[in-house]
Computed example of a mutant assay.
Amino acid sequence: MKPVIALTKGRLEKQFIKFLQERNYDVNPFLDKGRKLQVETDDFFAIFAKGIDVATYVEYGIADLGVVGEDILLEVQPDVFDLLPFPFGKCRFAIAGEPSNLSPLRKQRIATKYPNITTKYFRDQGKSVDIVKLEGSVELAPLLGLADDIVDIVETGNTLKENGLVVKEEMLTISARLIANRNSLKLKRAILTPLIDSFRVEEGII
Rank of each mutant, 00 (worst) to 15 (best):
N24M: 11
N24Q: 15
Y25F: 15
Y25D: 02
Y25W: 05
D26K: 10
V27G: 04
N28P: 00
P29L: 03
F30V: 01
D32P: 00
K33I: 02
G34R: 14
G34Q: 12
G34W: 08
K36A: 05
L37D: 12
L37Y: 13
Q38W: 03
V39Y: 12
E40K: 11
E40N: 11
F44T: 02
F44M: 11
A46V: 04
I47S: 02
I52M: 07
D53P: 00
D53W: 04
T56Q: 15
Y57E: 09
Y60G: 00
Y60S: 08
G61S: 05
G61T: 03
I62V: 15
I62A: 13
A63E: 07
D64A: 05
E70Y: 04
E70K: 01
E75H: 13
V76F: 11
V76R: 06
V76S: 06
D79H: 14
F81L: 14
D82L: 10
P85D: 12
P85A: 11
F86G: 05
K90Y: 05
R92C: 02
N101A: 15
L102T: 14
Q108S: 10
A111N: 09
A111D: 04
A111H: 13
Y114D: 03
P115I: 03
I117R: 01
T119S: 06
Y121W: 09
F122L: 07
D124Q: 08
Q125D: 06
G126F: 08
S128K: 15
S128W: 09
V129G: 06
D130Y: 14
G136A: 08
S137F: 09
P142R: 10
P142T: 00
